[in-house]
Design a protein around this nucleic acid. Structure first.
Length: 137
DNA sequence: GCCAACGTTGGC
DNA sequence: GCCAACGTTGGC
C-alpha cells in the first residue's frame, strides 16, 4: 500500500465535508496541475492518504482511503484531467500541524515541508509512520 | 494583505 | 524552443 496527501482549503471543502459524504466519498476533482494529476494516476484502490487543511489550520486532520482510481475529471472540459475518489476513514486524535512537521527531523524531506504548492503529494512509508506517531495513532 | 515560489501562456 | 509576463497557491 502507498501513502499520499490531499490538500484542501477547509472553508471550501474541509474534513467535515468529506465525513458528511460517508462511504460514498468524494470525487477529488478540480485539480489542473500535471504534477498533481500524475500523483493521482499512481494511486491504487485501498491506498491511504492524509487530509490536510491549507491556509486555515495548516494541519493534517484525518486519514482518507482511495476508493476509485484515476478517471477523467467530471468537471473538466478536457479528458486529460483525471482524478481519484476518496472517503474519510478516521480523524487524527491529534492533528499534525505544518509547524510540527517542519520541526520533526524525520519529515525534513517531506513534500509538504519542501514544496508547499503541490496540492496532491506522495508520502513515504517512513513519513507516514512518523505522522501516525505524532498524531497519536 | 503581501509576496515568494512555481506553473502556464504566448510573443518572438 | 526560449523566456518574460502573468496568474495562482499558500505560508506568513
Amino acid at each position: 500500500m502507498a501513502f499520499w496527501l490531499f490538500k484542501s482549503e477547509p472553508d471550501v471543502f474541509g474534513w467535515d465535508d468529506l465525513v458528511a459524504r460517508g462511504d460514498a466519498g468524494e470525487e477529488w476533482d478540480g485539480v489542473r496541475n500535471y504534477q498533481a494529476r500524475n500523483v493521482m494516476r499512481a494511486m491504487k484502490r485501498g491506498d491511504r492518504g492524509l487530509f490536510y487543511h491549507s491556509n486555515i489550520g495548516k494541519e493534517a486532520v484525518g486519514i482518507v482511503e482511495v476508493i476509485a482510481e484515476a478517471h477523467p475529471d467530471s468537471t473538466a472540459d478536457d479528458p486529460k484531467w483525471e482524478c481519484v475518489n476518496i472517503r474519510a476513514v478516521k480523524p487524527l486524535p491529534r492533528p499534525v500541524s505544518l509547524d510540527r512537521a517542519k520541526a520533526e527531523p524525520a519529515l525534513q524531506n517531506m513534500v509538504l515541508v519542501n514544496n508547499s504548492r503541490l496540492s496532491v503529494q506522495p508520502v513515504s512509508e517512513a513519513e507516514w509512520a512518523a505522522i501516525m506517531a505524532m498524531a497519536g495513532l
